[in-house]
Design a protein around this nucleic acid. Structure first.
Length: 625
RNA sequence: GCCGAUGUAGCUCAGUCGGUAGAGCAACUGAUUCGUAAUCAGUAGGUCAGCGGUUCAAAUCCGCUCAUCGGCUCCA
């Protein structure tokens, strides 16, 4: 059936018929190619469907070309650079002397729709490097020329794609023709550095997205809207959890009573869990002499992110990390191999001078508190310690209701330590993951300056990923601080150190929690677990009694005895996302009961005694006991 | 830090051509005493982000600064 020189398209339409209609590309012997690609007899041909992840990538990449064409059609003097597909859509970076406005995006979309209706085929053309360079030089596209010149030397030919008279340097593959685009939207304009380097020229990036169907696009846009509603900065204000204040300074968070209570609940849980797992709670000072930061390497590698202060003609560094005092605790005694592992845990508040442009509510602040620990152990113990931490992360994520993904980050460009130590540390992390049967991706060059790390990225209710837990393996600090333990052989040995956080930064974790639960926290985390609502003023004395009893029993509750109708107070409770609203009227007063109404609109629990309600709340707080 | 946008009452937002500030909700006071998502009436609330300039006159035009938002770079 297959003939030599046939194209993928011909093959698939003869073989699959209509099933080929939703294919955007194909995999021939594993390599993604256009449907117009010629194939040899006997090659393995697999369709890439528009709704698959790879297919969406092809579709979005093609839409980015269509957008680039539209932009150049409308605006003079626009130079094209690159336009890839990304996780949720695509972008294209342009050099343009003006600025693109939201109105411009509409104009561009309109032109794109015209290009789509014209159903121009995407045509691939191969050219020698030299020809391609002259071609783009002639067109006045210096960025494309630069890209070609930077390609590996052994590459003699490059491919260009064109549609409707627009040419772009591109590896492909692309959809067969522009008419295949059914649903797309341009989303925003932003600045972006050429080749992602802040020393380069700032380009203008237009973001957009595309889907196989309008329904999928609408669903995606709905999720964006939903994310806006859940924004922790908005909910933080509405639920009166915290504030950021211009007068206080950027990146500094002020926790209000309910936010501070939520944080306290999380921190108390952490302390208990760490004690259960053989950690020692320690506390170090906020500032340390600058010489200590020089010794650790932070002064050389992290100075730009640190705050300094001078007292009595002595320079101090305000800690951006918690490791150093833990080093000093270790060094305070001679340690035996029998003492190891030592696990020092600190809810360590750190200050990092983050660039103003990166600050983002609780997610990225200049002062934050890590649930930090440093584990000092023998090389033999490394594996079991890493595995224990991975188990703890898994447990914690379960408790807070998150799933997560794991990445292994390797040596970055700016780093300290020997190649051998990096190799040892990286393989220790790898091995522990494999021993725990944890699937992971490798993130090249993204390690800390002192060691490789395992990153746990938790996924929230909207599928967004957040970096929280990490495990970092460090051979360097023990050496710089000359840490040792006496081994069974009576000789001095160097311990290995693990840096690790479970929730990461408490602030960031709270931000993620707020967005994950849209502010409707599970009962055990809710700062206010119940609000007591009186029907009329005559129920206030009984309401006070219920309040006292609940408070004594450890239920976090509030009174709403205002002179408002019950419906109004219910509404207030709903908007504050309080899990239980206890209605107190004649019936409850007479029978000495409460009638809990549930936040989630589930059935009312009926009337019950105060003690019974306490039991209901306690049962939901098992995690916390 | 860089590109772009924004900043008006506690919150969400109007405010036209430059003529001296407005709504809804919240708050407060009073009436009402009510059974599961908004009772009625009234009162108060503003250095229009800050500083400077143009003008007879600036929330409005211009400049600078600060902060926030969307990205980039960086990161827990």
């Amino acid at each position: 059936m297959l003939r030599y020189g046939a194209t993928v398209m011909e093959i698939v339409s003869s073989k699959y018929g209509d099933a080929a209609a939703s294919a955007v590309a194909a995999r021939v012997n594993g390599e993604m190619v256009d449907l117009s690609h010629p194939v040899d007899e006997g090659a393995s041909v697999e369709l890439v469907d528009i709704s698959s992840i790879d297919g969406l990538g092809v579709l979005r990449h093609s839409i980015s070309h269509i957008m680039a064409q539209a932009v150049q059609d409308i605006f003079d003097g626009v130079k094209v650079t690159i336009g890839p597909s990304i996780e949720d859509g695509f972008y294209y970076d342009f050099e343009y002397s003006g600025t693109f406005t939201p109105e411009d995006l509409e104009k561009i979309e309109k032109r794109m729709r015209e290009i789509v209706s014209a159903n121009h085929p995407f045509v691939r053309k191969e050219m020698s490097r030299q020809d391609a360079v002259s071609f783009f030089e002639e067109k006045g596209e210096p960025y494309k020329v630069e890209l070609i010149n930077d390609l590996p030397e052994d590459l003699t030919h490059v491919s260009l794609y064109s549609q409707g008279g627009f040419f772009d340097l591109c590896r492909g593959p692309h959809i067969p023709a522009t008419g295949m685009v059914k649903a797309f939207k341009l989303l925003s304009v932003a600045g972006a550095y050429w080749r992602g380097d802040e020393k380069n020229k700032m380009l203008q990036r237009i973001y957009g997205t595309g889907f196989a169907t309008q329904e999928e696009l609408d669903e995606y846009l709905r999720i964006i809207e939903e994310a806006k509603k859940r924004d922790h900065r908005k909910l933080g204000k509405e639920l009166d959890l915290f504030q950021m204040n211009d007068e206080a300074g950027p990146g500094l968070i002020i926790f209000h009573p309910k936010g501070a209570l939520l944080r306290t609940i999380i921190e108390d849980w952490e302390k208990k869990e760490h004690l259960k797992r053989g950690y020692d709670i320690v506390m170090g000072p906020q500032i340390l002499k600058v010489d200590l930061w020089k010794k650790s390497g932070h002064f050389d590698h992290y100075r730009d992110n640190m705050y300094f202060t001078e007292v009595d003609e002595q320079m101090y560094g305000i800690k951006p990390m918690n490791c150093l005092s833990h080093m000093l605790i270790y060094k305070s005694k001679i340690r035996s191999y029998r003492d190891l592992p030592l696990r020092y845990f600190e809810l360590g508040t750190v200050h990092r001078h983050e660039k103003t442009g990166v600050l983002h509510g609780l997610m990225r602040a200049r002062q934050f508190t890590q649930d930090d620990a440093h584990i000092l152990c023998t090389p033999d113990q490394l594996n079991s310690e890493i595995r224990a931490i991975a188990d703890m992360v898994d447990y914690a994520m379960g408790v807070f209701g998150f799933s997560y993904e794991v990445e292994l980050s390797t040596r970055p460009e700016s780093s300290i330590g020997s190649d051998a130590d990096w190799e040892l540390a990286t393989s220790a992390l790898k091995l522990a993951l494999e021993d725990n049967s944890i699937a992971y991706d490798i993130n090249e060059g993204d390690g800390a300056f002192y060691g490789p790390k395992i990153d746990f990225k938790l996924k929230d209710a909207l599928g967004r990923k957040w970096q929280c837990a990490t495990i970092q393996c460090d051979f360097t600090l023990p050496e710089r601080f000359d840490l040792s333990y006496i081994g069974a052989d009576g000789e001095k040995h160097r311990p290995v150190m693990l840096h690790r956080v479970i929730l990461g930064a408490i602030e960031r974790f709270m931000g993620v929690l707020i967005e994950h639960y849209a502010g409707a926290f599970p009962v055990w985390l809710s700062p206010v677990q119940a609000t007591i609502l009186t029907v009329t003023d005559k129920h206030i004395p009984y309401g006070e009694e219920v309040f006292r009893r609940l408070l004594t029993a450890g239920v976090r509750c509030e009174r709403n005895f205002r002179n408002e109708k019950l419906g109004y107070k219910i509404r207030e409770g709903q908007m504050q996302k309080v899990p239980y609203m206890l209605v107190i009227g004649d019936r409850e007063m007479e029978s000495e009961t409460v009638s809990p109404r549930q936040r989630d609109g589930g059935q009312n629990l009926g009337s019950m005694g105060v003690d019974d309600f306490v039991a209901v709340v306690r049962e939901k707080c098992d995690i916390y006991q």
